[in-house]
Design a protein around this nucleic acid. Structure first.
Lengths: 332, 332
DNA sequence: ATCGGCCATGCTAACGTCAACATCGGCGGG
DNA sequence: CCCGCCGATGTTGACGTTAGCATGGCCGAT
């Protein structure tokens, strides 16, 4: 492989100094139109590409963002990753990913990102406590997705889905169908999103003057949803709001195995609207999260922070999608 | 933000030259034990971290790998990403991701990776034609996952799951249960993995001397699986091998809607063993892919190529996981 | 005509690291 | 006792880029 084309090569070809080439590359206004054109032609002819590492060394900016998550293999995280990757790419930023070994590795992971020189990091917050106690390397900008607004400010921005509003809508939907009680299959206690969804469920019950039963609890997985129902299914259950679609899937299997039909005997609502939810049996009524918008806003906020503008808190709306897993309770 | 700690700072603190610090960092043998210790203490005290961009500028290596996929939001790709991310991290490489805008953007994406200076790229091959026709920037090493072995060699390595063997095992399992015919719900024609799975199905049928019916076809999504069954379900179907779990999910819904019970009337087998497959109704017999091993091997092959060793072709075994969606046909 | 100011462009140095070569001291063999 | 070698360490410069300042030409205002 021959030496790569550098600015000096372009400069020689165009008969200008390297500095002028630099100005053209960075679209500085201080360049004569004719000169610019000459330089651009030289770049095209030589196939010049700026060297990111060299630029990073000089400017201290890498034009690279980081994404930090416990795992990338979960449905929600992978959809967020996809959205963040596209949003970053459309702004000319590269995206590098890092998964947490342990739950307490947040500080270490951020340090590693700092070392790599990323300009900012999107943190997919799954265990609030771990994220909140993490130390942030100086100069690193952060946007935390689905975190309590408390820590926002400084170099930390927050973006979240309206979990609470969505959960409230789901619960209200069930109540409006005539269900006297709505049970909740909650997510893990350590999760902010799970807490918000539970809060929204309580909101709706309170609005209706209905007492909230003790929620069941899972870990987001279908298996945990199944287990929760098998172990302690409420006797008189007619309506269940699961904190995500996968737990709803597991719960529906457990209900079927116990001889309860969905939706005739028990109505079920999920959360997320994963790609498969429309093909669950029955197709699942659920709350759709707008991951694309969430990723877009996270990247926007992050880059705003990097470029010195203020970071802010954003709430992305969610929306109830009605399918066949909900209906009014049977009379009788 | 104060200036970062550089090698010179460490050198001053330890009373040695920068070069000696460099030697310690790169664990060169040419350093006295006492000196090394002094330098290491200085690094610890100052919190020194090598500057990747500077190193990349000097050495031409970025210690960064790229991952290219059409989308990162699909189940299989996100599991591969997770595995690749961990394998890369464990070797001290960062991982940056890029998704394809269009199906023909492979060349452009590789060019962008080249520009970013990644040392190598893992390509998740979804449309063989697009990958095969792509131009590879000089000096960039590639490992293509699930591609025909033809292109291997030079700076291109190939790693694949044993789709064919897994499909054969799935089909053989159904035949062994006593099913006279096994129908296939295939993946998209453009996919190598889909073609291999179909080939494995044909292999097993040929072994048993059974004629292969015309396969149904979907696009990997549950919705497409549902649609395929609704539109042209074979009359006498008693056994179905779907090319992935999600299409199996859609197919099972369609079968249920048509009044066919799984597994009593129709046995169904999927492929992938996604996390939810054990909670489908009924729990799905499927073929497990070892994504961790696949990612590990891809990264291993890539780094071997980067460091000048030979790249090779690897086949990762798959394994049938029996659950409740298969049983012998009813005598009738 | 003179001068200040502005515009286009060039020159120099520096970002942090490492490869290549230089230096220095000690030690064993002749 | 001198030479040559080796092992440990230092010096220099370059990777490709851009910030900051310098230069020189032109124009309008005085």
């Amino acid at each position: 492989m021959q030496r790569r084309v550098s600015m000096a090569d372009v400069a020689a070809r165009a008969g200008v100094s390297g500095q002028t080439v630099s100005r053209v590359v960075n679209s500085s206004p201080r360049v004569d139109a004719a000169t610019r054109q000459r330089v651009e032609r030289a770049m095209a002819e030589l196939g010049y590409r700026p060297h990111r590492a060299a630029r990073a060394l000089r400017t201290g900016r890498t034009q690279t963002l980081g994404l930090l998550a416990t795992t990338l293999a979960s449905v929600g995280n992978s959809r967020m990753l996809q959205a963040v990757a596209e949003a970053a790419a459309s702004r000319g930023y590269a995206l590098t990913v890092l998964t947490l070994g342990g739950p307490d590795g947040v500080s270490a992971a951020l340090a590693q990102f700092g070392e790599q020189g990323v300009d900012g990091v999107v943190v997919l917050n799954e265990a609030t406590a771990a994220t909140e106690s993490a130390t942030i390397p100086t100069g690193l900008h952060l946007v935390v997705v689905d975190a309590p607004p408390g820590r926002a400010g400084g170099s930390v921005g927050i973006v979240q889905s309206d979990h609470r509003g969505g959960a409230r809508a789901a619960t209200t939907h069930l109540l409006a169908l005539g269900h006297a009680a709505v049970h909740h299959l909650a997510g893990p206690a350590s999760s902010f999103a799970a807490a918000e969804r539970e809060a929204g469920w309580r909101d709706a019950l309170a609005d209706a003057g209905v007492a909230a039963p003790v929620p069941l609890r899972g870990d987001w997985s279908a298996a945990s949803g199944h287990r929760a129902i098998v172990e302690r299914m409420p006797d008189a259950i007619t309506a269940l709001f699961a904190a995500n679609d996968q737990m709803a899937l597991g719960a529906m299997r457990a209900l079927a195995e116990a001889g309860r039909r969905v939706p005739e005997d028990v109505s079920v609502v999920g959360f997320d609207d994963v790609a498969d939810a429309a093909d669950y049996r029955p197709p699942l009524t659920t709350v759709r999260q707008d991951f694309d918008e969430l990723g877009e806003r996270a990247v926007h906020a992050l880059i705003a922070g990097i470029e010195g503008e203020s970071t802010s808190v954003g709430l992305v709306p969610t929306r109830l999608v009605e399918r066949a897993s909900t209906m009014p309770p049977r009379r009788g």
